[in-house]
């Protein structure tokens, strides 16, 4: 465990807790893409399969439980909660996320570390995580300006992945045989997807106006 990874995990934890808190307190999910939340639930479900078989550390198990619990409860809130669901803008959140899931699954069948169920699902979850933010970014483009909680959510998610890249660089130089192209490339692609969002996010911080994304 190094500082980059711990900071990355805590930033990731903060992103889901910020989101859960927002939905729970103001009982609204305006501006939040349900599709992205569903994709994240799938990412965690397919990656944390080993939760009950291999024990790595209390920290690891605890964080996996929190991520699984929070992502599924966010999906439940948006789909089922009688008040929250009314604020879900389903005719704006129209990104056909099956166009994301299937290519990731096919890619995982082609590129993986070992051809076993767990390894293929693990690769699938990495590819899916890289693109899971797309429906949310499309929704932000559509709804133009966003309230700053959603902006913070996307910002924290991007920061978590950027910190993980620093973690991989650190581990590459400190641990022998630490070469994992699948993880690195999908993590890099994911971070690049956030790059333009970061640009507009910092722009809006500078002139501290509402975050306006270009059409």
């Amino acid at each position: 465990m190094n500082i980059f990874r711990l900071a990355g995990d805590l930033t990731h934890l903060a992103s889901v807790l910020v989101l859960l808190l927002k939905i729970h307190t103001i009982k609204s999910c305006a501006g939040i893409s349900l599709k992205t939340q569903e994709l994240y639930a799938i990412v965690f479900a397919t990656r944390y399969l080993d939760l009950f078989t291999t024990y790595i550390s209390l920290y690891n198990t605890l964080m996996k439980l929190i991520f699984l619990g929070s992502s599924f409860s966010i999906v439940w809130y948006i789909r089922k909660h009688k008040i929250v669901r009314r604020s879900y803008d389903k005719d704006q959140d129209t990104f056909r996320h099956y166009f994301i899931v299937l290519p990731c699954f096919v890619l995982a069948l082609i590129i993986h570390e070992k051809f076993t169920v767990r390894e293929v699902l693990w690769a699938f979850s990495l590819y899916l995580e890289a693109v899971a933010i797309l429906p949310q970014l499309v929704l932000l483009q559509r709804t133009r300006n966003i309230d700053n909680l959603t902006g913070q959510y996307v910002f924290l998610l991007g920061a978590y992945r950027a910190l993980y890249i620093l973690n991989w660089i650190y581990r590459y130089f400190t641990e022998p045989h630490f070469v994992h192209w699948i993880t690195w490339i999908s993590g890099l692609v994911q971070t690049l997807l956030y790059a333009d969002f970061f640009y507009y996010y910092f722009q809006s911080m500078k002139n501290n106006g509402k975050l306006q994304l270009p059409a």
């Binding site: 080993d50 993980y164 022998p176 994992h180 993880t183």
Partner: peptide
């Protein structure tokens, strides 16, 4: 030496 994996990451 055991292959250092990213599987111990979240």
């Amino acid at each position: 030496v055991k292959e250092a994996s990213t599987k111990d990451e979240l």
